[in-house]
Design a protein around this nucleic acid. Structure first.
Lengths: 344, 344
DNA sequence: CTGAAAGCGCTTACAG
DNA sequence: CTGAAAGCGCTTACAG
């Protein structure tokens, strides 16, 4: 394997071998034979030679010339979070089916890294962007949109921004989950969330508060620090579960919070649902593995991914603007399982 | 937001505004002022104007001209598998720190899709490839390598292929895990794997068989069909656990197999470790959540990712070949926890 | 039906 | 110290 980097074959090479001009090769290889009325035998010869030479088009050159890279940028907080890993996987598949590839950039919820990712995607000339950006990236995301790069937000949204989104009706989902707990007989329902300023998380809290208020109950929301979740949740659980105002049910606003919560609860000797019922946003494989199946509010990844890719590519191809009025809401579904039995 | 797609600013725009040639702009913006002895005031002016105009270099043009795209291709079986999600996340971060972006393609363990991904990455002109390819993609991977595209395999390897790898010593890890079980008093240890032809999985089975043979015990390996894991494992567990040759410990060759196994075991009413001890390859969040912590053999994702990115970029920059002798072995670590107590 | 030529944005010898 | 020009591989009017 002492092969030196062999030059890739170009349309020029094919043209030479076929004894025609590069224009003809380009026409044929792009399926424009008919349009340009290229001679049939010539077209066949070109196709055959291209195959023989294992021609792979240089998308970089194509991209420079045509301004289209057939690449979609995807901005996520964290590829390691199961929720986003799943979403990324499906988006990648949906895109690849349509001939697009994905360039991924994760922000780690850091605004600085988000800036870097955005600039990187712009420099790479992606045709469009699907983003689940930080709260603090609003200005930059809006600037990208105003510069005419098609962009669509997924999972997250900015209050009042004129950008199309694909989201759950988070307020309603949390409202329904809370009402469901109340119907099942729970009366002291507390919510666990994390500080972030993220609108969609705020929507969930709003839905919870609304349901609690409507039913004349007392709300309590614990906000963990994102980077010290486990500790914060652990301390809060210790205090809360042993205090006079012990909750009978917990609503977690994200699966990662719930996983931490379950570990802390069981670690402190509390049983689910014996001591406290548990329901969480997002689906997480661990919810099936726990000794009682954890109830959850599902965000259908596949529908998010499909909608986002489809809408984005439509905008790219038809030069539409992805304004807020194009936004789509995906239906959630609540799975009531062993962690939230009916009580009396 | 009725902005039409505004043209991006190019070095030509900057040159015009600065009243100089594009060469100068190129020199300055690429930090070659000194090298080309560009006038100091001019250099400053160019830098300032570039910032004012929010210049973002067109990497597509750069890529066409220089043949370098500052993009790494990453081929994985499945982004949704926690193990690869984690690995991808770290690789992306490592690459981005070094100014590279990642173009990801998942194969779903399908050779056809793998072909598509490889061609896509080649057409995009990635500077190098990190791959955890299918068993069946060997020829294509070797061809890519022989064409001079730097490529390194991670997690997986091909028997006797002259391609650098970053892997665990899988045989040794399985050997040690099996010996550990034997030391803890287990005598009827069975292994659960899946059919794939993948060398690294085969290595694990070899290590298991070696340890069993050395200790004069009887081996049994169950091979599930990858796409019907849960069912297959469930049926095998039902038969195996109720038969005369009931295992006292199970070694799972991958976390996904173990998760399925645990669900099937508990579903069938067996307790861990009461009825059977369990240890698995890979770390999985669910292993912490189960009512007894599951023992596992850790593959350190971060060290895999760092080694792969570093070696690949070194090869890219120094035009080295990534031959098999450059391969690196990452140390595993076994966590013995509640699912494998000492028994007598 | 086919080819020569311009140009996408950039880098880099080559002149001066 | 600075600029004009070629060329990366491709597409696409424009001629013929």
């Amino acid at each position: 394997m002492t092969t030196t980097r062999t030059k890739r074959v170009s349309i020029k090479d094919i043209a030479e071998r076929a004894g025609v001009s590069i224009s003809l090769v380009s026409f044929v290889l792009n399926g424009k034979s008919r349009e340009h009325r290229v001679g049939e035998e010539i077209a066949e010869r070109i196709t055959r030679i291209a195959e023989e030479m294992r021609y792979v088009p240089n998308m970089v050159a194509k991209g420079l010339r045509s301004g289209r890279t057939y690449t979609i940028g995807f901005i996520i907080p964290d590829l390691e979070a199961p929720y986003f890993a799943k979403l990324s996987g499906i988006i990648e598949r949906e895109a690849s089916v349509r001939g697009y590839s994905i360039m991924m950039g994760s922000t780690g919820e850091s605004d600085t890294r988000a800036s870097g990712v955005i600039e990187l995607l712009r420099s790479r000339g992606v045709d469009g962007i699907i983003a689940a950006p930080n709260h603090g990236s609003r200005d930059e995301i809006e600037r990208v949109a105003s510069e005419g790069v098609p962009i669509i937000m997924v999972d997250r949204r900015y209050d009042g921004a004129d950008i199309a989104t694909v989201t759950l009706d988070n307020r309603k989902a949390a409202y329904e989950a809370t009402c469901g707990l109340i119907e099942r007989g729970y009366r002291n329902i507390k919510a666990v969330t994390y500080r972030s300023g993220l609108e969609h998380i705020g929507d969930r809290v709003d839905g919870y508060l609304e349901a609690i208020a409507e039913n004349g109950l007392a709300p309590e929301v614990f906000s963990a620090d994102y980077y010290n979740r486990r500790d914060g949740i652990g301390r809060w659980i210790a205090a809360s579960m042993s205090g006079p105002d012990k909750p009978d049910a917990l609503l977690f606003m994200a699966d990662i919070l719930c996983v931490d919560g379950i570990i802390e609860l069981t670690g402190a000797g509390y049983s689910i649902p014996g001591d406290v019922a548990v329901i969480s946003f997002d689906k997480n494989d661990a919810f099936d593995l726990f000794n009682v199946p954890i109830s959850y509010i599902e965000q259908p990844h596949d529908r998010f991914a499909e909608a986002a890719v489809e809408m984005l590519l439509k905008a790219v191809n038809e030069k539409e603007e992805l304004t807020a009025d194009k936004s789509v809401t995906i239906d959630h579904r609540i799975y009531w399982r062993g962690s939230t039995p009916v009580c009396h």
